[in-house]
């Protein structure tokens, strides 16, 4: 019961914050009174925020899945995304494969990488101290960055593909790449949800996150479930890479620009809680977009970080997290 009440208070708070960001500054912009309801650029910003939210949601999805099931945080998750982006870049630009097959190869490679990360590293640390797990996956982060630097150099690369944009109304333009990213993210979230709730394996993945030991009694081999979860998590990183590589340049340190946000989204939503992560992704993306609209894009990030810090004081277990 207490949780519902806090949830409601939080929702109200979030709405008020949005209202402040979206509405109040609007009416004094450039000395003129502009009503938010008739401000098409504001709508455009909010739509872009929504589209960005889809990508952020997808980005945090794999991380959340892995944490929820295996109880280990992959500090190097964004670096898996980075390697996925390179894989797609090389397949498409260097080896000349069409875009879609390149992306499929990228997803397959990151899934294999996820499997390998669990098999080679995490498997031996499942029952270790959290600090040791963090050190190991943190070490992987530097390993991947350095390996990428050695192998690919530090130049910024991009696919050189532009999907262009289209007019939603006369004044509002939406980029195809962003819309595609959002749609893919939405489909994947839905697909993962159906997998986790409708299939035996998915239900077992949820169950193992609630009680590891008892699943052994049910005839489930824990290690195998973890490997599968890691491969799915890696594949989701690859999918995020497909969407990001359409919009951003790749370089060995690109993970640093969205890794922290992905972690904050997971923590804000309640680590391991995928619905919470989903909501948090949209709160973050709207804060970033609206802050960027009224001030500067940097301010958008500042608002998002401040919101995160304040929330951590009010609700350290995350929006939908369980208290422990």
């Amino acid at each position: 019961m207490g949780r519902l009440d806090t949830g409601r208070i939080l929702a109200t708070l979030a709405v008020i914050m949005f209202a402040c960001l979206a509405y109040v500054p609007t009416i004094v912009r450039e000395g003129d009174i502009v009503f938010a309801l008739t401000d098409v650029y504001l709508y455009e910003t909010m739509i872009n925020g929504l589209l960005l939210g889809g990508v952020l949601a997808l980005l945090s999805l794999g991380l959340n899945l892995i944490f929820g099931v295996i109880d280990v945080v992959w500090i190097c998750y964004a670096e898996v995304v980075m390697l996925g982006m390179y894989a797609i870049f090389y397949c498409h630009t260097v080896f000349g494969l069409p875009l879609i097959p390149s992306m499929m190869i990228g997803i397959a490679l990151t899934a294999v990488l996820g499997y390998a990360i669990h098999y080679l590293v995490i498997r031996h640390l499942v029952n270790a101290q959290p600090i040791n797990q963090l050190l190991a996956t943190g070490g992987l982060l530097f390993f991947f960055q350095s390996a990428a630097t050695l192998a690919f150099g530090i130049e910024f690369r991009n696919l050189g593909v532009s999907l262009g944009s289209f007019a939603l109304t006369q004044d509002i333009y939406v980029s195809w790449a962003r819309l595609a990213a959002f749609a893919t993210a939405a489909i994947c979230v839905l697909g993962l949800y159906l997998f986790l709730t409708r299939s035996y394996t998915g239900t077992a993945i949820r169950a193992i996150s609630q009680d590891r030991e008892i699943m052994t009694l049910m005839g489930v081999q824990q290690g195998r479930m973890y490997l599968m979860t890691s491969a799915i998590g890696g594949g989701l990183a690859g999918l995020a890479a497909c969407l990001l590589v359409l919009q951003y340049d790749v370089h060995p340190f690109v993970g640093l620009s969205f890794g922290p946000i992905a972690f904050m989204i997971c923590v804000l939503g309640g680590l391991g809680n995928m619905v919470g992560g989903f909501i948090a992704a949209f709160i973050f993306s709207e804060l970033i977009a609206l802050g960027g609209y009224h001030f500067d894009i940097e301010w958008g990030y500042v608002f998002a970080f401040v919101f995160f810090i304040v929330m951590m004081f009010i609700r350290p277990e995350g929006l939908l997290g369980k208290r422990s």
Partner: peptide, 22 residues
Amino acid sequence: PENRRLFPRMTVEDNLRMGAYI
């Protein structure tokens, strides 16, 4: 097991489904 050890955040039917995992 001792203390039942159900999967608390899953439905009764999903709990039963896990019993039939093999």
